[in-house]
Design a binder for these strands. Structure first.
Length: 123
RNA sequence: UGAUUUUGUAAGAAUGUGUUCGUUGAUGUGAAAUAUUAUGAAAGGAAAGUCCGGACUCUCCCUGGCAGGAUUCCGCGUGAAAACGCGGGCAUGUGACCCAUAUGUCCCAUGACGGAACAGUGCAACAAAAAGAUACCGCCGUUUGGUAAGGGUGAAAUGGUGAAGUAAGAGCUCACCGGCGAGUUAGUAAUAAUAUCGCGCAGGGCAAACCCAAUUCGGUGCAAGACGAAAUAGGGAGUUGGGUAGCCAGCCCAAUAACUCGGGGUUCGUCGCACCUCGAAAGAGGAAUUUUGCAAGACUUUGCAAAAUUAGAUGAAUGAACACAUCAUCAUUCGAUGACACAGAAUCCGGCUUACUACAAAAUCAUCUC
């Protein structure tokens, strides 16, 4: 199962606002922050339980081409390595200045390490 | 040979092929495609800046004035308009030629090229006595003053040479040159020429300063706007007019109605919107773009025919991995890294501007050789 549905992405402002308040777990890297928290479950279908990700790329990171590339790389890393992300959790990826100079592989590996760390903090 | 600048060309297509995994619309099947299905499609020359002009939207798509904005040498052409193309004129500048105080001729480049006036206001660092009307030195006179010939300052100091004149000087006067205006001639015109007439030429520069003149424009911008669902309220305070056009009028509506303010709630979906119209559908008609061919034109281009094509997201799709080939860079033995500039559609068109890659041409500069 390698598809990436719309239900697996954060698509509302309210979803992003939740990261401001409640106790979120964070992993800080040199080029990004990965945050997560367990959301309220409303149903039992696949789309209710799957982990979701939101990506924040501000204008500080670079021009539109650079920001598009970062978003694609992060989504691809999330899609191909879904097993490292916990069920019924929301994730927020915030890119920092300087990420534009990194290669796709470097970013992917850094995200996976951060996800594994978040997995470990829970247990 | 290299660098820089300018102009032109290239739909500047993922370097190509294959495999695998995906994303977003569309269409088909289906009760349902968020059932993990099938088919086909999916970033640019600038998509950028948002500087102009339109389509379209709502609004008082009724009218005038004020305010405010835009445009600005002439002719022809293209265009819905902005704007663009060709030719001409004028100004400034580089270079060459001629001449040698000058004036002039040619080539190329640039030009936000209407107006400096018996319209008005304003501005000019530093230097200089003085930057619009001034006397520092000097000259003359001498009680106050006169004087722009000389010095000195500056980007710019009241046209130049000579004579006459004077206390000394000065277009104060005169001759020649220059300038301005009128007329005449040439030209469609901008404008040019002038051995005609007039003016001593007492006021230069900046309008990318306000401003003036002519022409022209209502505002709003897809977060426009339309519909649906859900939710809140059926109230509070204030005003007497209101019609959201920046303001003022006309015009229209209302007076137990309308508006304003504060508070509360919603911030979801569909359409607009993926070329348009008709149609249940099949399909038909038209539009645009690209390519090819033919024809027209001085050129940008235009017409006709044929074929192909018509992106549509909304925390925002158009991507990733691997293999082989090709190319580039680094090491130069195996090999390693990369696919390269500017840059990412956002309602849709036409321009302008800016950024940048490759190729071609021209100009300038530098170096080397003869």
């Amino acid at each position: 199962m390698f598809r990436l549905f719309k239900s697996q992405r954060l698509r509302k402002s309210s979803d992003f606002e939740k990261f401001r308040s409640k106790g979120t777990e964070s992993v800080y890297g040199q080029i990004f922050v990965l945050k997560s928290f367990e959301r309220a479950i409303e149903g039992t279908s696949f789309h209710d339980l799957t982990p979701r990700i939101g990506i924040v790329t501000s204008r500080k990171i670079g021009n539109a081409v650079t920001r598009n590339r970062i978003r694609r790389v992060v989504r691809e890393a999330f899609r191909l390595n879904l097993k490292y992300f916990k069920q019924s959790h929301d994730y927020l990826f915030i890119a920092f200045h300087g990420i534009g100079t990194k290669s796709n592989k470097e970013i992917t590996n850094a995200i996976l390490n951060a996800a594994k760390l978040l997995w470990g903090q829970d247990s």
